[in-house]
Design a protein around this nucleic acid. Structure first.
Lengths: 197, 197
DNA sequence: GTCTATATCTCGATAGAC
DNA sequence: GTCTATCGAGATATAGAC
């Protein structure tokens, strides 16, 4: 039971708070003082848990970056190109919905990108965003395909984290993002069961 | 002829430099010292041209924000919904290509958004981004349409400003972005003349 | 129009009490 | 594990010489 309250201990609350403030003000626009104030502690208390601000930024990003790498790896195992794309898209959207703020932040924030590129690399040494794009666009994509994938990647990630959709439930958001992604990538769009059947 | 060298005078060079640095490091991640160093002048020289950093940020954003409002207004004048959407999309993409860094910055940077929302409002009192989205999605859009438009808006803007496409010429980039936008919005995609014919 | 110099503030980060 | 107190650096911004 010692780890039972992991979601409410100070370190976890700190990361949640940091993610929220990073999303709102950007990494560079968020000071340790703001994080400490939001938590109701002092800066020194924050420094007990993390040695530097970069370490906080890295800890915020790490889980999703690692997951993104796994999703790309899983998708690569599929035999047909179509199945690879479908698998990658599904996994990507699932991750966006589960971590709404994080994927958008990763896509847009220079401070976050600096830290991720410096410290969180995929097993192949290639960064995870490139890996994901390669699965979606193919090994040596045409410019048209590369741009399409770029639009999907950033568009879905930022829509998923947009404040205007914060109140939408996971299932609904996931279906709409998947639909947009499939349309853009030219993938077939399966009909969903119409009323629970 | 006194305004003939407008593009090379210090104020214009300052705005160009600021835009580039803002895109690279974010507004909050860019100091006046960085801008001054890049220009080869001192901070005090920068303060001769602008009273505050917010004023620089506003001056960087202003032209494109105003143009975006005009594009939405022009598109609203079209009679059919289809023509409105086509006109808005075409104008939007044209603006993205002409101002590659700016539209992405406007979509992604919290510091830029803060200043724009505070000081640069459309004639109707509605912010220009919302106005553009309304033209594309309709007056009272379904959630699906709203999300699709959000993906188009952010995806195209960020792809247009992405460093990996900086070397692509305007015509090529415009056609690829238009194509992606039309696919996502379900608009017909006209065939282009195949070889100069 | 650009400079030097400086005021004032807040930043990230550390030391040491409790 | 959290606090007070403080450091040096770098931030925005201003005053005034040239």
């Amino acid at each position: 039971m010692t780890a039972g309250t992991a979601a409410t201990d100070t370190r976890s609350r700190l990361l949640d708070t940091a993610l929220r403030l990073f999303s709102e003000h950007g990494v560079e626009g968020t000071s340790l003082q703001m994080i400490a104030d939001e938590l109701g502690v002092t800066k020194a208390a924050v420094y007990y848990h993390f040695k530097t601000k970069d370490e906080i930024t890295e800890a915020v990003a790490a889980p999703a970056v690692q997951e993104l790498g796994q999703i790309a790896e899983e998708a690569r195992k599929k035999r047909s190109r179509g199945a690879q794309i479908d698998q990658a898209l599904t996994g990507f959207v699932e991750l966006i919905v589960r971590q709404r703020l994080l994927l958008g932040l990763y896509n847009r924030d220079p401070g976050m990108q600096r830290v991720v590129n410096r410290t969180l690399q995929a097993p192949h040494g290639e960064d995870v965003k490139t890996g994901m794009k390669t699965v979606l666009a193919g090994e040596d994509p045409s410019l048209a395909d590369a741009i399409t994938v770029h639009v999907v990647f950033t568009g879905l990630a930022m829509a998923g984290g947009a404040p205007e959709y914060a109140g939408i439930d996971d299932d609904t958001l996931r279906e709409h993002l998947l639909d947009a992604g499939r349309r853009l990538l030219g993938r077939p769009r399966p009909k969903r069961p119409s009323h629970g059947g």
